[in-house]
Design a protein around this nucleic acid. Structure first.
Lengths: 218, 218
DNA sequence: TCAATAGTGTCTATAAGACACTATGCC
DNA sequence: GGCATAGTGTCTTATAGACACTATTGA
């Protein structure tokens, strides 16, 4: 009986952010075989001498290839099989990240107009999008796309972009209030244009950490 | 710079079934290092010459070590790190399986009274239980714990065991009816004891396949 | 006929959505 | 003042839960 060659194991990261009212994903130009020169998800091998976990490996890859440090990072799932990578049987652990504006060294593409991607990265992005949209409809996940201080209207806009549909503002505010997710920044107001300035908020410290799957959320 | 040794990659399966109104998990007595002789989750290496995916590897392991073929199988997530396995930096992909009664070659332990498990298998089982209970509260996942023909009362009992709380039967029936999940087996009735016999049902063919995360479910 | 479980009808509490309204700052 | 956006109050509708009820069989 032939012995099984070990699988190739990698991590890939889908970093999402909002630019001009569009969800965008960070892509990286591959430097080496296979698909050198092609735009692809930032990814790489696990460094067993440095990384404490696959998730830590994804965070490192994201930091090294995009300059983004410690965004919200969540495991999406695995993609594996004999043919997805020309090098052989491979398994990649996919993580998705949400961040507000992103460092200048990142190249962002709107998810609705992505170039064709190597490996199964197209399917990976599609899967992550479905997951993020799904979670947005019942959790407070999208707050991670906002900077540390933001207005309700901005958060409202983020939800609308992620969900791709308009949300009634009155109901949005009510649910948000029920959640106890946000806290007022005392005296923090943002004036935009010639209209009424709006209150600035930040995420409640208690919630900052435990924004998890289980939260009822918005 | 030292080169990174590759991670050890395995799959593990958490097979759940119900025995005597208790959720039970299948354990397997390890044959080799590490923890030879200990009860642990059935698991093993990916066979890159045979397996089409990590999930297929989990299905194969389950078949070989417990005799259970093609149960409901879903990816749970990864567990990884430098210390969870004495052999070195390791990553395991965990899958959970739901099945009705199980082949005789399986040893089942009630989840509430598990022996102490090697590696991080205790945490893995705990995580899977949380996920299964959570999904049971909003999806039709638990139908996979029923045999192909079952009564509403039996399904009701399964939900109660999984959720660990009593469920109002009238509301349960109503939600089930709204779902359109089940279909009557014409003429199929089950008489138990001296009381009114109950109608047998099976899962609607259209639903059989696409019982997925996204179903509103019960 | 009665014990026991199957199955139904209906009221109530809560949450989601629609929508009309008021408030306030800047030009 | 009046335009534009911030923010509120309240009615309607869908859904979840509670609970009392009827139905049908075997002993």
């Amino acid at each position: 009986m032939k012995s099984n060659p070990p699988p190739i194991v990698t991590v890939d990261a889908v970093l999402l952010t909002i630019v001009n009212a569009e969800l965008c994903v960070a892509l990286h130009q591959r430097e080496s075989f296979p698909f050198a020169g092609h735009w692809a998800l930032p990814g790489g091998y696990i460094h067993t001498l440095e990384d404490d976990s696959a998730k830590a490996a994804a965070a490192r890859v994201l930091r090294d290839k995009t300059g983004v440090v410690s965004p919200y990072l969540e495991e999406f799932g695995s993609f594996s099989g004999p043919v997805r990578d020309p090098r052989g049987w491979s398994l990649t652990m996919v993580y998705f990240a949400l961040a507000p504006v992103v460092s200048a060294q990142v190249t962002l593409f709107p998810v609705s107009r992505l170039p064709s991607l190597p490996f199964d990265h197209g399917a990976i992005v599609a899967g992550v999008m479905e997951r993020v949209r799904s979670k947005a409809s019942y959790s407070s996940l999208p707050v991670h796309l906002c900077p540390s201080e933001f207005t309700i209207s901005e958060l409202h806009g983020v939800y609308e972009v992620v969900l791709g549909e308009s949300i009634n503002m009155a109901n949005f505010r009510r649910k948000l209030a029920d959640l106890n997710l946000l806290e007022v920044i005392p005296g923090g107001m943002r004036s935009a244009g010639r209209s009424r300035p709006s209150q600035l908020y930040r995420v409640n410290k208690r919630f900052k950490d435990r924004l998890s799957v289980r939260d009822r959320g918005l």
